[in-house]
Design a protein around this nucleic acid. Structure first.
Length: 190
DNA sequence: TATTGGATCGCC
DNA sequence: GCGATCCAATAG
């Protein structure tokens, strides 16, 4: 069952945890790709120094201030994209970064795009999964309650969840806002 | 207008 | 450990 707007319009930490075990589905150019979410990170707007929205709205982060249930895609390190889902009500800048997936459908397409054969090399990181799924800037602002990209509950139990500090973040280290499924081999940074 | 460094990745 | 590679943010 596709996740509706109301799922995203809730506290960010809750959404970040509940996204584990859900499926990310892409329908593009007649191809279907999907993967199970196994790792996320929460970013909470104005009061979180690590968030892109810290300090107010800019052209890049404006999607974070908008309606929940949309995609925030940004470009980083000159060559990678990262995918976030917007949470909390309109006007409150907050998002959950999708950090890793367990590939499910469309694995051959992912291998071709990633130029890698091992399943655990396809989507075990935020930049990798965007490359594998074909996510780029054209999807920035896309409605996740739609047809091309959406999240889905396939009735799986998440299992044990581990929380740690966020990767690549120096400020706000006391915040344990990274969540992943324990013992899952598709989590980044083994 | 110039400079700097990043919510990364893969190879050395 | 480090280079690739480019854009957003900030400083001037």
């Amino acid at each position: 069952m596709k996740l509706g707007r109301e799922f995203y319009n809730r506290p960010t930490l809750k959404v970040a945890k509940e996204l584990l075990g859900k499926y990310l589905v892409m329908n593009m150019e007649g191809k279907k790709l999907s993967g199970k979410i196994v790792e996320t990170e929460a970013y909470r707007g104005l009061y979180d120094p690590a968030s892109h929205a810290y300090g107010g709205m800019t052209p890049r982060n404006r999607i974070m201030f908008g309606e929940p249930g949309h995609a925030y895609v940004y470009f980083t390190y000159g060559m990678y994209y990262c995918l976030n889902v917007i949470t909390e009500r309109k006007g409150v800048p907050a998002a959950v970064l999708i950090r890793a997936l367990e590939p499910m459908e469309g694995i051959e397409i992912m291998k071709r795009r990633r130029k890698r054969e091992k399943p655990e090399d396809l989507t075990s990181g935020p930049g990798k999964l965007c490359q594998a799924m074909g996510i780029n800037k054209t999807l920035n602002g896309a409605d996740l309650v739609g047809k091309t990209i959406y999240l889905e509950n396939r009735g799986e139990k998440a299992g044990k969840i581990v929380s740690t500090d966020r990767i690549g973040i120096d400020e706000g280290k006391e915040k344990k806002w990274r969540f992943y499924l324990k013992d899952n081999k598709y989590v980044s940074r083994k």
